[in-house]
């Protein structure tokens, strides 16, 4: 009986447990997103109040969302994967060539996408986890390998006309109860592309994975302190390996979503996507030092990034360089915030 009350007491205490790093950063991120979106509504008005505006952000960034989720996984274990952008590009090209020239269908192209992603994940994961090399160098090599392979497959833009694929890519899913009235007063329901459904599914799956599965928790343990994790009986190498494999898989899926949206393959696709993915993860509260991060945060990170890009363009700063500079500036600010948090924590410990 007394045990029971204690347990309940413990549970009540739960709510009073001080904020974990993950939650602290998550709150910052969500706040940043809402502030940004409200700013967009206040200053830019009109468009941003329509649900479709929000869903368009999703439509355009479904691929980035999946890539960022993969990146978050690797970053939680204390690694990084900068090959995802070029892998996306490679996936697009390989799928486009398969559909256009090699008589493939939607199914084969999906297999190819997943296969490429997995292959990169497995090789890079092996090099990082078992040969203990710096993830940055390994994935930098992976990035250039993917870049080269893309042009080796085909150096020009390939537009896809295969009917099955075309139908899939143009499928629009209506969002229930959402929409807006046009000037005439007709109700136009809001829609999302099929890619968004997939991306949301990935987000949900990975959220569950990180929160409730033992493997997911061991990602955090490894990132928190990999020596301790080893002592606690976690297979650190396997965990790191799997993180890279999952990230590779996400790159495959994200690549296919990009392909669905772009309906073409080109060496210029997804240029700099890895930077956006890293930036989204970091803005979403994933710590570079590992062990801290959250998929929900990443979701908001992607949304924040997309919103600020929209704001920048709407402000008339539509010269192509402004988006990059904005992304870099945001990345810089959030890195500094993390650095300060980390420094303060270390000081407190002393």
């Amino acid at each position: 009986m007394s045990v029971n009350t204690n347990a309940i007491g413990g549970k009540r205490l739960n709510k009073r447990a001080s904020l974990t790093d993950t939650n602290l950063l998550l709150i910052i991120t969500i706040a940043v997103f809402f502030v940004m979106y409200i700013m967009a509504i206040v200053f830019l008005g009109k468009g941003f109040t329509k649900p479709q505006m929000f869903f368009n952000i999703l439509n355009e960034n479904a691929s980035l969302l999946v890539l960022s989720c993969g990146m978050t996984l690797v970053m939680i274990t204390g690694g990084i994967d900068i090959s995802v952008g070029q892998v996306t590009s490679l996936v697009c090209m390989a799928c486009a060539v398969n559909l256009e020239f090699n008589g493939g269908n939607v199914f084969t192209s999906m297999l190819i996408a997943l296969g490429i992603g997995l292959a990169f994940g497995i090789v890079q994961g092996f090099l990082v986890a078992y040969l203990e090399f710096q993830p940055f160098i390994v994935t930098l090599a992976g990035m250039f390998f993917a870049k080269g392979m893309t042009t080796i497959i085909c150096s020009d833009r390939v537009n896809v006309t295969e009917p099955g694929f075309d139908a899939l890519s143009k499928t629009e899913v209506t969002v229930p109860f959402m929409g807006s009235y046009n000037k005439v007063g007709d109700f136009i329901p809001a829609f999302v592309e099929i890619g968004v459904i997939v991306a949301i599914l990935v987000v949900v799956l990975l959220f569950v994975f990180l929160r409730w599965t033992k493997l997911g928790r061991s990602f955090y343990a490894v990132g928190g302190n990999n020596q301790s994790a080893n002592m606690l009986g976690i297979n650190v190498k396997l965990t790191k390996f799997l993180a890279h494999v999952l990230c590779g898989l996400c790159a495959g899926i994200g690549g296919y979503l990009f392909f669905l949206h772009a309906r073409s393959g080109s060496p210029l696709h997804a240029q700099g996507a890895e930077m956006n993915a890293i930036a989204s993860s970091i803005i979403g509260g994933t710590m570079l030092s590992g062990g801290v991060g959250n998929i929900v945060g990443t979701l908001f990170g992607v949304l924040s990034l997309a919103t600020i890009k929209n704001i920048v363009t709407s402000l008339g700063l539509d010269d192509p360089w402004w988006t990059n500079i904005t992304v870099a500036a945001m990345l810089c600010i959030f890195l500094l915030v993390q650095s300060v948090i980390l420094a303060r924590k270390n000081k407190n410990k002393k």
Binding site: R217, G224, N225, S228, L232
Partner: peptide, 17 residues
Amino acid sequence: ITLCPNLTVAENMYIAR
């Protein structure tokens, strides 16, 4: 101390077990 500082107390006690 060979525990993970970023996990909760309970997790540290039961992880990998």
